[in-house]
């Protein structure tokens, strides 16, 4: 098991490259899926012209995005403007490192994997603030502030909810959490935790009904108003990487990850993740958006007390099941 350290570093490099490639491909797929799902819900057909039934549309979009001019406002802070999108996109990809894609297939089984998954995206807040502030634009500035306030507010109930899973599994490693669900997936034991996780995750990744930082009717495009081309694409990549990571992590924490009859684990995880992703898209095109103050009230006065109650509830469940 003991491998030389330079080799470990090289393995990290390799898996990092793989993770970034996966995220790129996933973003293309998810954007197309989202456009088709939204079209279906709104009674349209969606993209139809590039490739069969518009299947190549996002590939074309990606080529367009890397070929677009890189515009920066004259009064923007150049360094912070460049750093912002990186600090948003990189943590989103980094969080994939601990997701067990099959029973043994995980990029790195950290002994603090669950905590890592919650902590790394915390860096995103700095990126959002930097991007919003550096753009020297009122919409960006307000959008950046709102996003970061929303992000940190929902991080607490979300973390408290994940604590319940850690309690039952008795480990912070994502692989151990998966192992512990051999007999019963945690969605059965902790249905309320699962609900809280899904809702707070939607808020954490800035999606409707919590996409207020990007509310186009009041903030144009929020913190990424001034971005174009590849730098804008990084924000987009981060959004879908975060969306996917949250869904896959939810499938691992509550739905037993890759466990299931007949099919290989990777397929089962993909199916469960896809179901969660679809529900996320469904919600996006069905519910209206919250107002800024409603959003904060919901986080602190509903979800935080609810997650504390849920913690006590989970402790009782743990005692009842554990023996």
């Amino acid at each position: 098991m003991e491998v030389s350290l330079p080799l470990t570093f090289a393995a990290g490099l390799l898996w990092g490259a793989v993770a970034f490639t996966i995220v790129g491909a996933l973003t293309a797929g998810l954007v197309l899926a989202e456009r088709k799902v939204s079209a279906r819900i709104q009674g349209r057909v969606g993209p139809m012209h590039t490739g069969p039934h518009g299947a190549l549309q996002t590939i074309a979009d990606m080529i367009k995005l890397v070929m677009k001019e890189d515009v920066r406002p004259a009064r923007a802070d150049a360094t912070a403007f460049r750093l912002g999108p990186l600090l948003v996109a990189v943590p989103a990809v980094l969080s994939l490192a601990v997701i067990p894609f099959g029973a043994p297939l995980v990029m790195r089984d950290l002994n603090v994997g669950v905590l890592y998954f919650l902590a790394i995206p915390g860096v995103t807040v700095i990126g959002l603030l930097l991007a919003g502030w550096a753009s020297y634009d009122n919409y960006s500035f307000l959008g950046g502030l709102r996003s970061s306030a929303q992000f940190i507010s929902y991080e607490i109930p979300r973390s408290l909810t994940v604590v319940t899973v850690v309690m039952l599994a008795g480990s912070l490693s994502t692989v151990d959490v998966l192992e512990a669900q051999r007999s019963v997936p945690y969605v059965v034991l902790l249905p309320f935790s699962f609900f809280l996780y899904c809702v707070t995750s939607l808020a954490e990744i800035n999606r409707l009904p919590f996409d207020m930082p990007e509310a186009e009717s009041e903030l144009v495009a929020g913190y990424h108003t001034e971005y174009s081309g590849f730098r804008w694409a990084l924000f987009f990549l981060a959004e879908y990487a975060g969306f996917f990571a949250a869904a896959a992590f939810g499938a691992v924490l509550f739905l037993g990850g890759g466990s299931g009859p007949l099919l290989p684990p990777v397929v089962w995880l993909a199916v469960k993740t896809a179901v969660l992703l679809f529900i996320g898209m469904w919600i996006r095109f069905t519910l209206p958006r919250f107002r800024a103050d409603q959003l904060m009230r919901l986080a602190w006065k509903v979800f935080l007390p609810a997650s504390l109650v849920n913690l006590v509830l989970a402790a009782l469940i743990m005692r009842a099941v554990g023996s």
Binding site: G12, L13, W15, A17, A19, L86, V90, M107
Partner: peptide, 15 residues
């Protein structure tokens, strides 16, 4: 070290 390598790759590719 693994995570360091991972991060280096993820930062380098977009740059």
């Amino acid at each position: 070290l693994f995570l360091l390598g991972f991060a280096v790759a993820v930062v380098t590719i977009p740059l």
